[in-house]
Amino acid sequence: GKMTGIVKWFNADKGFAFITPDDGSKDVFVHFSAIQNDGYKSLDEGQKVSFTIESGAKGPAAGNVTSL
């Protein structure tokens, strides 16, 4: 299901971020390909987002990341 959280930090050079979920679970890795914005895919620290949890090769990662 959809979860919500806050972007903890975003590394534009490497194209990934971490989200701190609102439910208090541990921070979730985000690859820029999961960001659903049109055009430039970036996130801002402190931004509120919704996302799903996908199981990636290196463990859980956020999918369908959308700005709220």
Score class of each variant (00 low, 15 high):
Gly1Gln: 10
Gly1Asn: 09
Gly1Pro: 09
Lys2Leu: 12
Lys2Phe: 13
Lys2Asn: 11
Met3Phe: 07
Thr4Trp: 08
Ile6Tyr: 07
Ile6Val: 13
Ile6Gln: 03
Val7Ser: 00
Val7Leu: 13
Val7Asp: 01
Val7Glu: 00
Trp9Glu: 04
Trp9Arg: 03
Trp9Gln: 03
Trp9Lys: 05
Trp9His: 06
Trp9Gly: 03
Phe10Arg: 04
Phe10Cys: 14
Phe10Gly: 02
Ala12Cys: 15
Lys14Arg: 08
Gly15Pro: 01
Phe16Gly: 07
Phe16Pro: 00
Phe16Val: 14
Ala17Met: 08
Ala17Leu: 10
Phe18Ala: 10
Phe18Met: 09
Phe18Tyr: 12
Ile19Asn: 00
Ile19Arg: 00
Ile19His: 00
Ile19Met: 01
Thr20Gly: 04
Thr20Pro: 00
Pro21Tyr: 04
Pro21Leu: 06
Pro21Met: 04
Pro21Thr: 04
Asp22Leu: 07
Asp22Pro: 01
Asp23Trp: 03
Asp23Ala: 02
Asp23Gly: 06
Asp23Phe: 04
Asp23Leu: 02
Gly24Lys: 04
Gly24Asp: 03
Gly24Trp: 03
Gly24His: 04
Lys26Met: 08
Lys26Glu: 09
Asp27Phe: 04
Asp27Met: 08
Val28Thr: 04
Val28Pro: 00
Phe29Val: 14
Phe29Arg: 08
Phe29Cys: 15
Val30Met: 10
Val30Asn: 00
Val30Pro: 00
His31Lys: 14
His31Glu: 14
His31Thr: 08
His31Trp: 14
Phe32His: 07
Phe32Ala: 06
Ser33Asp: 12
Ser33Cys: 15
Ala34Thr: 10
Ile35Asp: 03
Ile35Met: 06
Gln36Ser: 08
Gln36Asn: 11
Gln36Tyr: 11
Asn37Glu: 09
Asp38Gln: 08
Gly39Met: 08
Gly39Asp: 11
Gly39His: 11
Gly39Ile: 08
Tyr40Cys: 15
Lys41Asp: 11
Lys41Ser: 12
Ser42Met: 10
Ser42Glu: 10
Ser42Asn: 10
Leu43Met: 06
Asp44Cys: 15
Asp44Thr: 12
Glu45Lys: 12
Glu45Pro: 09
Glu45Asp: 05
Gly46His: 03
Gly46Val: 02
Gly46Lys: 02
Gly46Arg: 02
Gly46Asp: 02
Gln47Gly: 05
Gln47Ser: 11
Val49Ser: 00
Val49Met: 01
Val49Ile: 08
Val49Leu: 02
Ser50Ala: 12
Ser50Gly: 04
Ser50Asn: 07
Ser50Glu: 09
Phe51His: 00
Phe51Gly: 00
Phe51Gln: 00
Phe51Cys: 04
Phe51Thr: 00
Thr52Ile: 13
Ile53Trp: 12
Ile53Pro: 08
Ile53Arg: 05
Glu54Gln: 03
Glu54Gly: 04
Glu54Val: 02
Ser55Leu: 07
Ser55Asp: 15
Ser55Arg: 04
Ser55Cys: 15
Gly56Leu: 07
Gly56Tyr: 09
Gly56Cys: 15
Ala57Asn: 15
Ala57Trp: 11
Lys58Gln: 15
Lys58Gly: 15
Gly59Cys: 15
Gly59Ser: 06
Gly59Tyr: 14
Gly59Ile: 10
Pro60Val: 04
Pro60Trp: 01
Ala61Tyr: 14
Ala61Gly: 11
Ala61Asn: 12
Ala61Val: 14
Ala61Ser: 12
Gly63Ile: 13
Asn64Ile: 12
Asn64Lys: 05
Val65Met: 07
Val65Gln: 12
Val65Asp: 14
Thr66Val: 13
Thr66Tyr: 00
Ser67Ile: 15
Ser67Ala: 09
Leu68Asp: 15
Leu68Glu: 15
Leu68Ile: 15
